[in-house]
Computed example of a mutant assay.
Amino acid sequence: MNNIPRIVIHVGAPKTGSTYLQKRLRADPAHLRRNGIYVPVLPSVAQMAGNAKLLATVLSKRPSLSFERIFPNIDVTRLRPAAIVSELLRDWRSDEEAIVLSAENFRPEHAGALRELLPTCRSCVVVLFVRRQDQWIESYFNQLTKTADVAEDLSSFVTRLCDTQGERFCRPDWNTHYEAWRHAFGACNIIFYDEARSDLFSAFLSAAGLPIVPDLIEVPPAQVSLNIHELAYLLALERPFSHADFVRHRVAGEEASKRLASGVRSILGEAEHEKLRQRFEASNHNLLTALGRANEPKLLQLTPSTRRCDLNEVYASDDYVRYRKLADEIFSARSLDSV
């Protein structure tokens, strides 16, 4: 490897191709390592795509609901970040290869603590993908709804991310992310999702200063978005319910969508869009200025969608009524099968 050995930290953000990048990094680790790139995996949480998600979770000391369901026996308040870092770095050949630590749940408040935990004798590169907040927040809300990590409408979710910090969720103030990681590590390399989406992996390698790896196994992009009927169906479920019932409803909704196609449309209202614009427009400008790209405002320009719809209109539509009936029938049949 011609480049100086280094530590590469991929800090997300979520909903910018993170799962795809993480799965591809782990698809053929031996081949990557022969090309000077080491991706360690902790056996206790190997099923997670991001190899440093446990570290980020322990730094927060507040796991997501999904994490608690998947790893009920892991008490993050009893784990030490230093011990996790030591395990991640244990087999790293620091004189001859780069190590990649990837977790889209790294937050700005983690930057200083992580810098202190990593060896200072090796250079570090931080990579952050960013995306315009109006498109990003719907995709993020979709994912959290699908995993049952949120149970609220999009309007209240937008308000929460605009007005509160909250360690469980990512706040899309990209300039704050950039400044925190730049301050702690000396630099933070930014990738604009919309510029790189045709080849996210190559964009990541380039920003990390890593070599392009020939013949690396490709993996399909993760499909986690819900179409408008699936989202409406999950949001309308009467609570409380068990997680097992929620999963059966979600699977039933997915199966109904295969039989009754529905497009993906925006449910971000004008008021919520304006709230995002007021909260993040100045921050976006500051980030673009810091990157020397202030003359390219469209990179993060928040513009209302022309495919916007109102959920109340969706619920009242004949298409949704047919969809809901089919999804409920599938759910009932699957529930009987499980008895």
Score class of each variant (00 low, 15 high):
residue 1 M to W: 12
residue 1 M to S: 15
residue 3 N to T: 14
residue 3 N to R: 12
residue 6 R to P: 04
residue 9 I to A: 10
residue 10 H to R: 09
residue 11 V to Y: 05
residue 11 V to N: 05
residue 13 A to N: 14
residue 14 P to Q: 15
residue 17 G to H: 13
residue 20 Y to A: 13
residue 24 R to P: 02
residue 24 R to C: 03
residue 25 L to T: 07
residue 26 R to S: 13
residue 32 L to P: 00
residue 34 R to H: 06
residue 41 V to K: 03
residue 47 Q to E: 15
residue 53 K to I: 15
residue 57 T to K: 01
residue 62 R to F: 09
residue 62 R to Q: 14
residue 62 R to N: 13
residue 66 S to Y: 04
residue 66 S to M: 14
residue 67 F to N: 00
residue 69 R to Y: 00
residue 71 F to N: 00
residue 71 F to R: 00
residue 73 N to Q: 15
residue 80 R to K: 06
residue 80 R to S: 04
residue 83 A to P: 00
residue 84 I to L: 08
residue 84 I to H: 01
residue 85 V to Y: 05
residue 90 R to Q: 14
residue 90 R to I: 07
residue 91 D to K: 05
residue 92 W to D: 08
residue 93 R to Q: 15
residue 93 R to T: 12
residue 95 D to N: 10
residue 95 D to R: 14
residue 102 S to P: 11
residue 109 E to H: 13
residue 110 H to C: 04
residue 110 H to P: 02
residue 114 L to R: 07
residue 115 R to I: 01
residue 117 L to A: 11
residue 120 T to Q: 09
residue 123 S to Y: 01
residue 123 S to H: 05
residue 124 C to R: 12
residue 126 V to A: 14
residue 127 V to A: 10
residue 130 V to F: 13
residue 130 V to H: 10
residue 131 R to K: 04
residue 131 R to A: 07
residue 133 Q to V: 09
residue 134 D to T: 09
residue 134 D to F: 08
residue 137 I to N: 01
residue 140 Y to A: 15
residue 142 N to M: 14
residue 144 L to F: 15
residue 144 L to C: 13
residue 152 E to N: 10
residue 152 E to F: 09
residue 162 C to R: 05
residue 164 T to F: 02
residue 166 G to V: 02
residue 168 R to E: 15
residue 172 P to T: 06
residue 173 D to H: 13
residue 174 W to S: 07
residue 174 W to I: 03
residue 179 E to P: 00
residue 180 A to P: 07
residue 181 W to T: 09
residue 183 H to P: 00
residue 184 A to D: 11
residue 187 A to N: 08
residue 188 C to F: 11
residue 192 F to V: 13
residue 196 A to R: 15
residue 205 L to F: 10
residue 205 L to W: 08
residue 208 A to P: 05
residue 210 L to I: 10
residue 210 L to K: 08
residue 210 L to G: 09
residue 212 I to M: 06
residue 214 P to F: 04
residue 219 V to P: 01
residue 219 V to C: 06
residue 223 Q to A: 15
residue 226 L to R: 07
residue 226 L to S: 12
residue 229 H to K: 01
residue 229 H to I: 01
residue 231 L to D: 00
residue 232 A to I: 03
residue 233 Y to L: 10
residue 240 P to D: 11
residue 240 P to N: 11
residue 242 S to L: 02
residue 242 S to A: 06
residue 245 D to T: 10
residue 245 D to M: 09
residue 246 F to E: 02
residue 247 V to Y: 00
residue 250 R to M: 08
residue 251 V to C: 02
residue 252 A to I: 02
residue 259 R to Y: 06
residue 260 L to D: 00
residue 267 I to K: 00
residue 267 I to H: 02
residue 270 E to R: 14
residue 271 A to L: 11
residue 271 A to H: 13
residue 277 R to W: 08
residue 278 Q to H: 03
residue 280 F to L: 08
residue 280 F to I: 09
residue 287 L to F: 03
residue 289 T to A: 02
residue 292 G to K: 04
residue 293 R to C: 12
residue 295 N to T: 12
residue 300 L to W: 03
residue 303 T to M: 13
residue 305 S to Q: 10
residue 305 S to C: 11
residue 307 R to N: 13
residue 308 R to T: 14
residue 310 D to N: 14
residue 310 D to A: 12
residue 313 E to V: 12
residue 321 V to D: 03
residue 322 R to L: 10
residue 324 R to K: 11
residue 324 R to N: 05
residue 334 R to G: 01
residue 337 D to C: 12
residue 337 D to Y: 08
residue 338 S to N: 03
residue 338 S to F: 05
residue 339 V to I: 06
